[in-house]
Design a protein around this nucleic acid. Structure first.
Lengths: 352, 352
DNA sequence: AAGATTATTGACACCGGTTACCAAAATGAC
DNA sequence: GTCATTTTGGTAACCGGTGTCAATAATCTT
C-alpha cells in the first residue's frame, strides 16, 4: 500500500505537487502519466517515485476536461435478461480493471420514440470514450450512426456480425443451433417443434436459420403447426407449449429460442403429465440461471457472454487498456457458443 | 426540440457563446444555470433565451472540475442475484431521470481483502456525489465509514435498518417471513423445515428470525434436522432438499430463504416423486424470475426492489433531483415486502 | 570539433466552468 | 442632494490536467 501522502493542506496531491517534488515541470509529469514515449528512463523513474511517495492519483475530471472526453465507457442496453447484462458487465470490468476507465450503465427504452434523443443527450453530456450496444438495441443502425456522428466509438454485440469487424463482437448462434438440432435428429427425433423469438430480433432470425438448416440437411420439413412464435418471455413459452402439445401428433422434441420459453414449455409438459425428457425433449438457449433451476435441468446453448464483454471492451478501447489488451488483427470477432448437455434431452420415444 | 445551434466552428456552444449572445458576462450565465437569486428578471430571461437559442448544455466535466465533485452516483454491489441488481438500477434511474446525474456501476469483490482499497481508489478517482450499497456489502460497516471519510454520501440498502435512517433503505423481511409462515401453520402444517441463507448475511438472519417468531407463536419447535444451512445458491437448495426429504418423518412444508434454494428443493422433490404442493409446500423469497419459471410456480416474497432503488437515490441526493424528490421526514425508510401466493403451497396432507 | 539532427523537457495558453472579490448601479435614509 | 447600504455585473484567478511549440540537451555527421 502506498503511503497515504497528502499534498499541502491535507488535500489530494495534484500534478503540481508531484512536479515540485520530482523537480520537473507538470507537463513532464503528465507525460509520465500518459505513458508518453520520449522520456529518459531517469526522469520517468524520478517522477514515478514522486507519484508513489505522494500517493498521487490523477484527477479524472480535470483530464476529462482537457481531453474533451470522459474516461468512461458506456453500456447501453435494453435487455430483458438481467443475467446476460450483468455477465456482460462483468466481462467488461474484467477488461478495464487495471485501466483508468470506469463503466457507465445506461438502460434505454427501445420502445420510446425519444430513445435516440435520450441517448444523444446522454452521450453529449457524459462524453464517454465509447459505447457498447447490447442486443437487441445493437441491431439499431441509427444508434450506431449516432455514435459515429458524435465521435463516440462503438461496438455492437450480436448474434451475428452486424457491422464492420472493428465495431463488432458476436457469437455464432446459427451454427450452434444447427449442431444442437442435428443432435436431436441423431437421437431419432423426427417431429421437432420450434419456438421462435420475437419478430425483428436478429438473434431470433439467426436461431431460426440454424434450426431450418439442420432440418433441411436431414430432409425434414417443419409443419406450420410445429412453428410457434414467442417473444422470449416465459408466458410466450407457456402459450407455445399449450399449442404444440395439444396437437394430435405432438412433437417429440422442441427447440426453444431461449431458456425462459423453454421453461414455459416444460411447465406445460409437467402440467399435462408428459415426461421430460422421456416423452418430450427440450432444448433452450442462453444458459440463463433458469436453465439449471428448473427440473429436469435444461440442455441449452451457452454463449460466452462474459468473454464477449471483455472482448467488446478490448475492441472498443484497445489503446486505453494497456499493453496486451489489443485484439490481434487475426482474432475473429465471433466467439463460439457451446452446447451444454443436461437432462432435458433423450432419444425419441420408440412408439412413434 | 431545441435548435441544434452550434457555437462558432460547429462545436458545442460554451458558456462564453451564451454570454456573448446575451450580452452579459459568463458569471451571469453561470448564475442563471445555478439558479442563483439576485438576478433581474430581465437579465435572467435574456440569458435563458440565449441558452435556448444556442442549445447550450453546460459541460459536466468542467462543472465537475470546478465543483470538485462529479455529478455521478455510484452503485456498489456484490450481489449474486442479477435481477435484483438490475431492478434496483432501474429504480435509481427512474429517480435520476430528469436530473443532471448519471449512474456509475461498480461490482465489488466481497471476498477480496483488497476490497476496501479498491473501493477507496474508485471513490477517490470518480468522486461521485454519493454511493449506494446493496446487500450484502451494505452490511459492511468499514465501507460505510470509508464513504463517510471520503465525504461521499452513502445509503445502505438492507433487510433491516443498518444505520441512521438518513443512510438507510430497507425492507421488512422479518415481518413478511413471519406472515408467510403463519400462513403455512394456518393451513395445517406442523412439520415445517427451514433452509437458511449463508452465515454472516443480515438478510439470512432476519428471515430466520421471522421464521422462528411465527413458529414460537404457534408453540412449534424447529428440530435440528429440519434446519438446513444453505448459501442462497441452487446447489445448496439441492443439498438441503436431499437432507430434509430423506428424513423418516420429512417436513410437509419448507421455507427457503431464497428462490434459488427453493428451486433446488423442488427439483429434489420432483426427483423423488414427491408432489408439490400436494405432499410438500414450498415457499421462497425474492420473487426472482426463477420463481415463475419453475413448475409449479413458487409462492414467494417480493421485495419492492425497484422502489427501493428510487428511494435510495432520493435519500442519497434529494437536493440534486429537483423539487418533489425530497423524502418527507416522516416517510419510513422501510418499504414493505409482500407475499406473492402462487402454486407451491397447499394445505398439509391429511395422512400426517 | 563544429554544425546539424534528433530526442527531451518546459513555458504558457487553454479546456469550460466556478468562486472570490471588487466596482458600478440602484435604493433608501437623512 | 449627499452618503451609506444593498443589488447586480464584471474581472481575475483557479480547479487539475493537456496541447502547442519553442528551448535545451544529447547524439550524430563529417
Amino acid at each position: 500500500m502506498a503511503a497515504q501522502g497528502k499534498g499541502p493542506g491535507g488535500k489530494q496531491p495534484t500534478i503540481n505537487d508531484v512536479a515540485a517534488l520530482a523537480g520537473v515541470s507538470k507537463k513532464t509529469v503528465s507525460r509520465v502519466i500518459n505513458r508518453s514515449e520520449f522520456l529518459t528512463e531517469k526522469t520517468r523513474r524520478a517522477v514515478e517515485q514522486a507519484i508513489e511517495q505522494l500517493g498521487f492519483v490523477p484527477n479524472p475530471q480535470a483530464r476529462a476536461l482537457a481531453f474533451r472526453r470522459n474516461f468512461l465507457i458506456a453500456l447501453l442496453h435494453d435487455n430483458p435478461n438481467a443475467q446476460t447484462v450483468l455477465n456482460f458487465q462483468q466481462g467488461v470490468l474484467d477488461a478495464i480493471k487495471d485501466s483508468d476507465l470506469a463503466l457507465l450503465v445506461r438502460p434505454v427504452d427501445r420502445g420510446s420514440d425519444k430513445m435516440l434523443d435520450d441517448v444523444r443527450v446522454f452521450l453529449e453530456k457524459q462524453r464517454p470514450i465509447g459505447a457498447m450496444l447490447l442486443p437487441p438495441i445493437s441491431e439499431n443502425d441509427d444508434l450506431a450512426a449516432l455514435c459515429e456522428n458524435l465521435g463516440v466509438r462503438y461496438v455492437r454485440v450480436g448474434s451475428a456480425l452486424l457491422d464492420d469487424a472493428r465495431h463488432c463482437v458476436s457469437s455464432n448462434d446459427r451454427e450452434v443451433v444447427a449442431e444442437a438440432v442435428r443432435g436431436l435428429i441423431a437421437r431419432g427425433h423426427r417431429r421437432i417443434g420450434f419456438v421462435r423469438g420475437p419478430a425483428g430480433f436478429r438473434s431470433a432470425a439467426e436461431r431460426e436459420k440454424g434450426f431450418m438448416e439442420a432440418l433441411a440437411e436431414a430432409g425434414l420439413e417443419l409443419p406450420d403447426a410445429y412453428h410457434a412464435r414467442g417473444n422470449y418471455r416465459y408466458a410466450s413459452g407457456v402459450e407455445a407449449g399449450e399449442a404444440l402439445l395439444a396437437l394430435a401428433s405432438p412433437p417429440t422434441a422442441i427447440f426453444c429460442s431461449n431458456d425462459e420459453m423453454a421453461a414455459g414449455v416444460m411447465g406445460i409438459a409437467h402440467g399435462k403429465g408428459i415426461a421430460v425428457p422421456g416423452q418430450l425433449s427440450i432444448i433452450g438457449f442462453d444458459d440463463s440461471p433458469t436453465a439449471t433451476h428448473i427440473w429436469p435441468a435444461l440442455t441449452t446453448v451457452r454463449w460466452p457472454i462474459r468473454e464477449m464483454g471483455s472482448r467488446a471492451a478490448r475492441t472498443l478501447v484497445p489503446d486505453f487498456l494497456g499493453f496486451g489488451a489489443k485484439v490481434a488483427s487475426d482474432e475473429s470477432p465471433v466467439l463460439p457458443s457451446i452446447l451444454v448437455e443436461r437432462q432435458s434431452v433423450a432419444a425419441a420415444p420408440a412408439d412413434t
